[in-house]
Every structure is written in C-alpha cells, then in structure tokens.
Amino acid sequence: MSKVIRPPFIGPAVFSYGFRPFFLGAGVFAVLIVPLWMVIWSGQIAVRGPFSPLDWHIHEMLFGYTSAVIAGFLFTAIPNWTGRMPTRGWPLMALTALWLAGRLAVAGALGLGQVAVMVADCAFMAAIGVMVTIEIVAGRNWSNLKVVAAVLLYLAANITFHLETMIAGSAYYGRRLGFAMVVMLIGLIGGRIIPSFTRNWLVKKSPEPGALPEPFGRFDAVSLGAMLLTLLVWVVWPMSMPAGVLLMLAGVGQGARMLRWRGWRVWSSPLVLMLHLGFGFIPAGLVALGFASFEILPAAAGYHLLGIGGFGGMTLAVMMRASLGHTGRALQAGPALTLAFACVALAAVARVAVPVPMGLWIAAALWTVGFGIFVWRFAQVLTLPNPARRQPNGR
C-alpha cells in the first residue's frame, strides 16, 4: 500500500488528528467525573438526568469516558490501516461537540426528555460507526470490519442501557452488555497491539531478542469467540453456575493469551509493561465475576477490576503511548507517567481490597491523581503542534 502524502494542517493543532481532542477530553473527563461521583454518592448533590445515581456513574464511565478513548484510538489507527487521509478539522470538531452534548444531556444539563437524551448520547457512537465503516470500506481493509462490528455492538449496548432505564427504571442488562462489549474491544485490540509493541521493543533492544510474543492467531480468535459466548451467557443469566464456570474459564483463556505475549521480558520498559499489566486486570476481573456468580465475591469486585484496572489502566497506557508516539516524542514513560499508571492500577486494587467507604475514597483519590498527572503532562502535547513541525508563526 502506497503511503499517502498528507498536506499540512492549518487549523488548530488539537483538531489535526483524532487522538488529540478525544484523549484530552477523556483525560479531563476522568479527572472530573470521579470526584463528582463521590459528591453525589455522599449525598451532597443530586443527579438531574434520567438515570439513578448509580446508573449515571456506570453509564458515564462505560459510555462517556470510554467512548472518547475508543474514538481517539480508531481515528488514529484507521489511517494506518487503510492508507487514507486522517479525519481532521471540522469533522473532528463536530464529533467532539457531539460527545460533549451527550455528556451534558445525560447529566440533565440540557433539560431534555429521556428519548431526546438517548438520541443526544447515542449520536456520537452512531457517527463514529458510520465514519469508521466508510473509511474501512473505502480503504478495502476488510480484515478490520470486525472492529466495526464491535463498535456497533457497543452502540447497541448504550441504546439498551437507555431503553432499559425507561422501561424498568435501572439498566441491569444494559450495564452488563456495556461491560461485555468493552471487554471484547480490549480483548480484540489489545491482542493485536500488545504483542506487536512488545515484539518491536524486544527486537530493538537486542539483535538476538530470544523468544518473541506470539502474533494474533487462531488461539486468540478461539479464545475471543469463547469469551464472547461467555459474556453473552453472563449478560442474560449472571447468577448461574454456567455463567460462573464459563467466566472463570474465559479468565484463564485470556491469561493464557497474556503468557504468549512474554510480558515479563519488558520489565525495564514501563510504557510497554503498562499494557501488559492493564490487560491483566481483564482475566482477573472475569475470574472475580465468576466467583460472584457463586456468591463467593460481590459483583462489584469484578466490575471494578474490569472497570478501573482493565478499562482505565489499558486506556491510560494506550493514550500515553499514542500521544507520545504521534507527536514525535520519545516512547519513554519517565517517573511521572509511571506514577500515573501505578495510581490507576492501585485504585483498582484498593476498591476491591479495602472495605467501603474507605476503599471507595482511596480508589477515587488514586484514580483522580493518576489521570490528573496525565492531563498535566499531555495538555500542551495534545493542543500544540508537534515540536519538529512548528513554524515561526506557531503552526
């Protein structure tokens, strides 16, 4: 595939590439949303939107924060997949406005009814799905159509969440379906980028790097298919023996995938190691949900291992690496970024291991500090032009 020559972008740098507005937005949102949740949880303010406080918290972590990271990743990766021009300029501005409108609508700030809130919130991922499909089809990159399917299922989970709250008052099925789809996205995308980045680092480190990670293959496809079946059983029938057994087996399967990626060999590269550690919360969370099906552990343990450690840790690691790499900076974490990831990982452990309310407050503080470091470190990186491309006029 020939390399596309990209003309210089003359608009605001923050809208020059997909990762910039969405990674920045996700980081700022992560810093604000958890302290706000703690204020709501402690009863100091009330949620004005259509959801109960707990549903609002779950929804905004699943479909608010996470959707921004997914959009940033896709609009950065797809030009590499297809060889086509990246989405930038006014389309990115419009998509960012859609994402912000969804957050305001769900919070009740726009004064909309439930149906209008659903439309405002779901419009963002619907637009992402359409644009991603157009790009992949135009680039004839048929192998990545499975990513489109995952995105559309993620959108379906969000619609289910809204409809269920309208009908039943709370989104039990929508909540589980949302978790299931994000787990699948991380399993699919993480299973491609983690062994690839690990291999690249090992080869660069030594001309004779020894055992290398196994690339995405039949074992990964089978384990992902089994995990999808498992998660669908869990969505429909969570407190059952079949769900419990299948969840534990799925966790073991994802753990086996991790062993094939040789993560223990990259301990001296925190930026690569973070990806392995973040993904490690996925099998841990699946096993914890399996124990919850037998009422051995609370379901909250599995949810938070997946949500804080898996979703939060993996997305933070991906955002840091992509933001450094795509702005021409060295792929080195340094003490600050290493601390940021450690805070989020420890937040997951604290939320599960320390009793409520202390564990809740500790986890919230660690999460906020971790993402606060990310925003502090990357606010200018994401809003200013790449250093090598700066012109005397600031472009």
Score class of each variant (00 low, 15 high):
residue 1 M to W: 11
residue 6 R to H: 13
residue 6 R to F: 14
residue 8 P to Y: 11
residue 8 P to S: 12
residue 9 F to A: 04
residue 11 G to C: 06
residue 13 A to C: 06
residue 16 S to D: 02
residue 21 P to L: 03
residue 24 L to T: 09
residue 25 G to L: 05
residue 31 V to G: 05
residue 32 L to K: 04
residue 36 L to W: 14
residue 36 L to E: 03
residue 40 I to G: 06
residue 46 A to F: 13
residue 55 D to R: 04
residue 56 W to G: 04
residue 58 I to S: 10
residue 59 H to E: 06
residue 62 L to K: 11
residue 62 L to V: 02
residue 68 A to G: 08
residue 74 L to A: 07
residue 78 I to P: 05
residue 79 P to D: 06
residue 83 G to L: 03
residue 85 M to G: 08
residue 85 M to I: 12
residue 86 P to R: 03
residue 90 W to L: 12
residue 91 P to L: 11
residue 92 L to M: 05
residue 95 L to F: 10
residue 95 L to I: 08
residue 97 A to R: 07
residue 102 G to E: 02
residue 103 R to M: 03
residue 109 A to S: 08
residue 111 G to Q: 07
residue 113 G to H: 07
residue 115 V to Y: 12
residue 117 V to G: 02
residue 118 M to N: 02
residue 123 A to Y: 13
residue 124 F to E: 04
residue 124 F to K: 03
residue 125 M to V: 15
residue 127 A to T: 14
residue 131 M to L: 15
residue 131 M to S: 12
residue 133 T to Q: 08
residue 139 G to C: 05
residue 141 N to S: 15
residue 144 N to D: 05
residue 147 V to L: 06
residue 147 V to D: 03
residue 150 A to I: 14
residue 150 A to K: 02
residue 151 V to G: 02
residue 151 V to F: 07
residue 152 L to R: 11
residue 158 N to C: 04
residue 159 I to D: 12
residue 161 F to P: 01
residue 163 L to T: 02
residue 168 A to C: 12
residue 169 G to S: 12
residue 177 L to N: 03
residue 178 G to F: 03
residue 178 G to I: 01
residue 178 G to P: 03
residue 178 G to Q: 03
residue 180 A to N: 05
residue 183 V to I: 14
residue 185 L to Q: 05
residue 186 I to R: 01
residue 187 G to C: 06
residue 191 G to F: 05
residue 192 R to C: 02
residue 195 P to R: 07
residue 198 T to E: 04
residue 198 T to D: 04
residue 199 R to G: 08
residue 202 L to M: 13
residue 202 L to Q: 13
residue 204 K to C: 12
residue 207 P to C: 08
residue 209 P to D: 11
residue 209 P to I: 09
residue 211 A to I: 12
residue 211 A to N: 11
residue 212 L to I: 11
residue 213 P to F: 12
residue 218 R to Q: 11
residue 224 L to H: 13
residue 226 A to F: 15
residue 232 L to Q: 08
residue 233 V to M: 14
residue 237 W to P: 10
residue 245 V to P: 02
residue 245 V to S: 09
residue 252 V to W: 07
residue 253 G to P: 01
residue 257 R to M: 03
residue 257 R to Q: 08
residue 258 M to F: 10
residue 259 L to A: 13
residue 259 L to I: 09
residue 266 V to I: 15
residue 268 S to Q: 15
residue 274 M to G: 04
residue 276 H to C: 05
residue 280 G to M: 09
residue 284 A to C: 09
residue 289 L to T: 05
residue 290 G to F: 01
residue 293 S to Q: 04
residue 297 L to P: 00
residue 302 G to K: 01
residue 308 I to Y: 01
residue 308 I to Q: 00
residue 317 A to H: 07
residue 318 V to Y: 05
residue 319 M to L: 10
residue 320 M to C: 09
residue 320 M to L: 10
residue 321 R to D: 03
residue 325 G to W: 06
residue 328 G to F: 12
residue 329 R to Y: 11
residue 332 Q to N: 13
residue 334 G to H: 15
residue 335 P to V: 11
residue 336 A to H: 15
residue 337 L to A: 07
residue 338 T to Y: 13
residue 339 L to C: 09
residue 342 A to H: 03
residue 361 W to R: 01
residue 361 W to Q: 03
residue 363 A to H: 00
residue 365 A to H: 02
residue 366 L to S: 00
residue 367 W to A: 00
residue 368 T to P: 11
residue 370 G to A: 05
residue 372 G to W: 06
residue 373 I to N: 04
residue 383 T to D: 06
residue 383 T to W: 09
residue 385 P to Y: 14
residue 388 A to W: 14
residue 391 Q to Y: 09
residue 391 Q to A: 14
residue 392 P to K: 08
residue 392 P to R: 10
residue 393 N to C: 09
